[in-house]
């Protein structure tokens, strides 16, 4: 079976007055079916542009993108995918139910009961007949998720699905996304909520300035955690024995602090400390976090290319040139 998403050397270039700007550069993505895939990157990294290309809303300049085995943008693919944009807006004069019926009609679905079922699924059963203008941000996001399930999609694109939500709404949406995976759907999430991504995603890709920096299983990318051992009553001679290229040894007062990779077993070291009448104060495993990986990846990529680290705040859109100055290149 084909991959859920596959891109090959995908590039998107805009021609501006200042010259050509590549928003996405030679991107090779592989998203397996049935997984939750996190698509990460700082502001302006090219995430939204990539999603728009995958949805067929804009066109790549070179390379190719396939979604569910078909060319991105194919109308048949649109029957099997759905998209929840960041900060979605809905026609405010409509009720939740009317919004659902509108989107259902775009699929040719006339089943009102299906709309009701989906609204109930996202806990909007009681509010389905209220105008959207009276909905909170979290409720609007839940309508967005409900409409994205209308066609029973195989693949969902979620752009910042938990952005700006209160903690309760945040957890509700996160749990819903986890249920999507249980139902066998593929979920492609673009998010800045790294803790969410770390908690729910199977694999991630990190892009920076349009280029892929990392892609792989989270457990592989986050491998290489450390263990910190604190002990007292240890001699300098023994401490020196522990020292190696990958093991950092230091003293804080009379306490020895050993920082070692978690791939090595600490047992031998702990036995040595005890046999020398030392006392183990603590053994703390320090797992590598996605945040560390993200910052590390972006920083080292920027340093390697002589760039300054991007801000994590401000607007979340890619730096698309203004309509007046932009001209697509090569299509």
């Amino acid at each position: 079976m084909s991959l859920a998403i596959e891109t090959n050397q995908l590039t998107k270039t805009y021609k501006t007055r200042a010259g050509q700007v590549s928003v996405v550069k030679n991107l090779d993505l592989q998203v397996e079916r049935g997984e939750i895939f996190g698509f990460l990157g700082p502001n302006g990294a090219g995430k939204t542009t990539t999603i728009k290309i995958l949805l067929g809303i804009i066109y790549g300049t070179s390379g190719w993108a396939k979604v569910l085995g078909e060319e991105a943008g194919d109308i048949n693919v649109h029957k099997k995918i759905s998209y929840l944009p960041e900060k979605p807006y809905y026609y405010e004069h409509m009720t939740g139910m009317e919004i659902m019926q509108f989107y259902a009609s775009l699929f040719g679905i006339k089943d009102k009961a299906q709309c009701e079922r989906l609204l109930q699924r996202v806990n909007l059963g009681m509010d389905m007949n209220r105008p959207i203008s009276q909905y909170s941000k979290g409720m609007q996001q839940r309508v967005g998720l409900a409409q994205s399930l209308l066609n029973d999609p195989e693949l969902l694109f979620l752009d910042e699905p938990t952005g700006g939500l209160d903690p309760i709404a945040h957890i509700e949406i996160r749990d819903l996304i986890l249920k999507f995976r249980e139902e066998g759907r593929t979920v492609f999430i673009s998010s800045h909520e790294l803790s969410d991504v770390e908690r729910i995603c199977d694999r991630v890709a990190i892009i920076n300035k349009g280029e892929l920096v990392h892609q792989g299983r989270l457990e592989d990318l986050l491998a290489g955690g450390r263990i910190e051992i604190t002990a007292s009553g240890v001699t300098q001679a023994l401490a020196d024995k522990f020292r190696s290229d990958d093991v950092l040894v230091s003293f804080k007062g009379d306490r020895l602090i050993v920082d070692m990779p978690d791939s090595d077993s600490p047992n031998e070291m702990l036995d040595s400390i005890r046999s020398e009448k030392g006392s183990v104060v603590s053994v703390i495993p320090r797992r590598k976090r996605l945040e560390d990986l993200f910052l590390e990846s972006v920083r080292s990529d920027n340093q390697a290319k002589g760039r300054v680290l991007n801000k994590m705040s401000d607007d979340h859109n890619d730096p698309k040139p203004s309509a007046e100055e932009e001209t697509e290149v090569g299509s």
Binding site: G56, I57, P85, E86, Y103, L106, G144, F157
Partner: peptide
């Protein structure tokens, strides 16, 4: 501007 177009054009709508 309001991005409603994205939720429409990603459906089977030409």
């Amino acid at each position: 501007e309001r991005r409603t177009i994205y939720t429409i054009l990603c459906k089977p709508v030409h």
